[in-house]
Simulated scan of single mutants.
Amino acid sequence: MSVLPKFKPAWIKTDIWKQMIDNWNTPTWKAKSKRNKRIRSKPTGGKHTLASQSYATAKRKAVKDVTHPL
């Protein structure tokens, strides 16, 4: 985290950026970050998107597939 002051985005005020870095260096934040990194690395078990179809369309197709299997 010590290199972060060099990479401050232009749109963030310096005092806010320093507060953010201070917060990221707390044990609580580091524990949350470590936990969330572990969670993100787990497989999700499938896609979370419906592509370009609506939820209603996806639901209709799913019901059709269940009620009329091949």
Rank of each mutant, 00 (worst) to 15 (best):
L4M: 07
P9K: 03
T28S: 10
R35G: 01
T49D: 14
M1K: 12
L50W: 15
K8N: 02
K6Y: 12
K64V: 00
L50V: 00
D22L: 03
G46V: 00
N23E: 09
P5M: 01
K61C: 04
G45M: 02
A62F: 11
T57Y: 14
D65M: 09
K42R: 14
D15S: 02
S41G: 07
L70F: 13
Q53N: 13
D15H: 02
N25F: 08
R35S: 06
K42G: 01
W11R: 11
A58Q: 10
M20R: 08
K13L: 00
K42M: 04
K42F: 07
T49N: 15
P27K: 07
A10C: 00
Q19P: 02
T44W: 14
K42V: 00
T26I: 03
T28Q: 14
K30C: 03
Q19I: 03
T26H: 09
K64E: 09
I16A: 05
I16S: 05
M20H: 09
W29L: 07
T28W: 12
Y55A: 14
K47Q: 12
S2M: 02
T67V: 08
V63Q: 10
K42D: 03
S33M: 07
S2K: 10
V3R: 12
P27D: 05
A62Q: 13
K8G: 03
T14E: 04
T57F: 10
K18R: 14
P69Q: 09
S54E: 05
M20I: 06
I39Q: 13
K30D: 04
G46I: 02
K30L: 06
K13S: 05
V3E: 11
P9M: 03
T44A: 12
K61F: 06
R38S: 09
N23L: 04
K37E: 06
P5D: 01
D22P: 01
K8R: 15
L4N: 07
I39Y: 12
T44Q: 14
V66N: 11
T57S: 14
M1I: 03
K61M: 06
L4Q: 08
R40L: 02
N23Q: 08
D22E: 11
A56H: 13
K13A: 05
P27H: 04
K18I: 00
Y55Q: 12
S52V: 00
W11A: 05
I21F: 02
K42Q: 09
Q53R: 15
A62M: 08
M20S: 05
K30Y: 04
A62K: 13
K37C: 00
H68N: 08
F7T: 01
G45S: 03
T49Q: 15
K6F: 11
A51Q: 11
I39E: 13
Y55C: 11
T26N: 08
T44K: 15
V3H: 12
R60F: 05
A10Q: 10
N25E: 10
K42I: 00
A62R: 12
A31T: 03
D65W: 11
L70V: 05
W24M: 04
K8T: 01
D15M: 02
S33Q: 13
W11G: 01
R40C: 02
G46H: 06
I21A: 03
K59D: 07
R38V: 00
K6L: 07
M1R: 13
R38A: 06
A10R: 11
G45V: 00
